[in-house]
């Protein structure tokens, strides 16, 4: 059987498929009428990404200003330029991926899962290349303190990014959007730690600093999952559009 013959069978079947009743279409139109107001379309991707970048940079710098810029002061020129240029790049890539996650039908180059894997892998590679101090001192207590500090700034960065972009509702997959927002916030949290933390032990940076990204991403996905699914089950009852 040739492709054209299959096309023909499919076309005939599609033509035979039932259309909605005119009454159904009229009901749909009537249901949106009361809330039909002009809306302003989203700005361009680069404009929103710039906004997200500004939010993340502001949260990181504000956090480091509060806690002290001990990390960046201890770094040499190579470490500063490599670590912060990588973080700037990652925040930009994560911001753009988050924007594409939220715009239906846009060309998406990186899924949320791929973004998380890519961000974590790049950070691990950069940290492994730059930090060679193999001493380990108070690995867990110092590490957990750093992890919590990173998360403390990752959460507001993710939350502000979410509010900037999604205050009017999620169009597509909320869990995937939560994962992307969490990843973006996590990278902002790592940026804050790099500005602040003067502990350059390789194991400390590789494990505890990098862990902020997947943990923040998991937190973002979990929160959106919890928030979305009870709402999804009740959406049929709530037929009035917002």
């Amino acid at each position: 059987m040739k492709d054209e013959e299959i096309d023909d069978v499919l076309n005939r079947a599609a033509r035979a498929a039932h259309d909605p009743q005119p009454e159904t279409l009229r009901r749909v139109a009537e249901s949106i009428k009361p809330s039909l107001r002009p809306v302003r379309p989203l700005p361009s991707t680069w404009a929103i990404t710039s906004g997200l970048f500004f939010v993340c940079a502001a949260v990181s710098v504000a956090g480091a200003a509060h806690a002290g810029f001990f990390g960046i002061e201890k770094m040499d020129i190579l470490e500063r330029s490599l670590v912060f240029s990588t973080l700037v790049l990652l925040i930009w890539v994560a911001g753009a991926a988050f924007v594409h996650e939220m715009i239906p039908g846009s060309r998406r180059r990186l899924s949320s899962g791929a973004l998380l894997a890519f961000g974590s892998a790049v950070l691990l590679a950069i940290f492994a290349f730059l930090f060679r101090d193999c001493h380990v001192e108070h690995f867990v207590p110092v590490g957990v303190a750093c992890l919590l500090t990173g998360l403390l700034y990752a959460v507001p960065a993710a939350l502000l990014s979410w509010l900037l972009l999604l205050r009017r509702g999620v169009a597509l997959n909320p869990v995937s959007a939560g994962l992307a927002a969490g990843t973006l916030g996590g990278i902002a949290g790592v940026a804050m730690l790099e500005l602040h933390c003067p502990n350059f032990e390789a194991a400390h940076v590789l494990v505890w600093h990098t862990a902020v990204v997947p943990l923040s991403a998991a937190l973002g996905a979990a929160v959106t999952w919890i928030l979305h699914f009870p709402r999804a089950s009740g959406s049929r009852e709530r037929a009035t559009p917002q």
């Binding site: 249901s31 949106i32 989203l42 715009i103 999620v170 037929a239």
Partner: peptide, 13 residues
């Protein structure tokens, strides 16, 4: 119906 409600809610995107 559900699709149009969502389209309506996120038409700004």
């Amino acid at each position: 119906q559900d699709t149009w409600l969502r389209i309506h809610r996120v038409r700004h995107t």
